[in-house]
Design a protein around this nucleic acid. Structure first.
Length: 218
DNA sequence: ACATTAAAAAGCA
DNA sequence: TGCTTTTTAATGT
C-alpha cells in the first residue's frame, strides 16, 4: 500500500527519524471511509484519528439536536488526543465530507509512543496550541449578534490569511453556514446584502473584498 | 432578525 | 442527464 505516507505526512510524526516512523507505522491501521460515513462517534472506544486524504468534519450536537461545526480536519490534522488525557467529549462526531482515508492509532499505543519519544509530547503540545487558537477564533463569532457581522469578520480573516483581497471559500456554503452558526439560506442572503451594498463581489466561491474599511465597520 | 419549509435555479460528474 | 448544492420565496417564531 502506498499508505505509509500516513505517518510521514503528518506534522505530528514527520520530524522523527525514519526508523522511528517505521515503528509507528506498524502500530497504525488504515481505513477508508465513503462520503457521509461516521468516523468518530461518542460511543466508540477512544482512538487517535489522523486524516490522510479527504476531509473530516468535526462537530458536536447541542441539546436540541442541532449540529455545531467545530472545524474541518484536512490531511495532516488529527482528532481524538483529548480523550487520552481523560477529557472525553461526550458528543463529538466526525463525518467524512468526501471519500477520505484515515490512520487509526489505539490510545494505549499512542500513550506508549509519547513515553518512548518525548519529542512527540512537545510537538503535540505545539500543534494543540494552534488548534485552541482556531477554536477561540471561532468562539468570537458567536459573541457577535448579527450574522452579517460574523460573515464580514470571517471574510476579513480569510483575506488576512491569504494576504489578498481576493479569496476563495475553503468550504461549501452549507458548511460555512453551520460554521458561522446559521443556515445556508440566511448566509446566501447576507452574501447578497454585502454584494448589493458594494462591499464585495462574488462569483461562486470566489469572493473579492472591495471595501474593507466598510466591512470592518460592521 | 432568523429559522423553516418548499421549490426553483444553478453546478457538476 | 440526474443528482447535489445554492438561491429565491413564503411563512413561522
Amino acid at each position: 500500500m502506498a499508505q505509509h505516507r500516513c505517518v510521514t505526512l503528518v506534522p505530528l510524526f514527520n520530524h522523527l527519524a525514519e526508523a522511528e516512523q517505521e515503528k509507528i507505522n506498524q502500530l497504525v491501521t488504515h481505513q477508508k471511509f465513503a462520503k457521509g460515513e461516521q468516523i468518530i462517534t461518542p460511543e466508540q472506544d477512544p482512538r487517535l484519528v489522523i486524516v490522510a486524504r479527504g476531509q473530516l468534519k468535526l462537530y458536536q450536537l447541542s441539546a436540541d439536536g442541532k449540529e455545531q461545526l467545530l472545524r474541518v480536519a484536512e490531511p495532516g490534522d488529527y482528532e481524538g488526543e483529548n480523550a487520552l488525557f481523560g477529557a472525553r467529549n461526550a458528543n463529538l462526531f466526525g463525518e467524512a465530507l468526501q471519500s477520505t482515508e484515515v490512520c487509526l492509532l489505539q490510545h494505549r499505543d499512542f500513550q506508549q509512543l509519547l513515553l518512548a519519544y518525548p519529542q512527540l509530547s512537545l510537538k503535540l503540545l505545539a500543534i494543540n496550541a494552534e488548534k485552541m487558537a482556531g477554536l477561540e477564533a471561532q468562539q468570537r463569532f458567536f459573541r457577535m449578534e448579527k450574522i452579517e457581522e460574523r460573515l464580514a469578520t470571517y471574510l476579513l480573516d480569510l483575506a488576512k490569511a491569504a494576504e489578498s483581497d481576493h479569496v476563495t471559500l475553503p468550504m461549501k456554503m452549507k458548511e460555512l453556514a453551520t460554521f458561522l452558526g446559521t443556515t445556508p439560506e440566511t448566509l446566501s442572503r447576507k452574501f447578497k446584502l454585502l454584494e448589493t451594498a458594494g462591499w464585495i463581489t462574488r462569483h461562486g466561491k470566489h469572493v473579492t473584498l472591495v471595501d474593507k474599511t466598510e466591512l470592518e465597520e460592521i
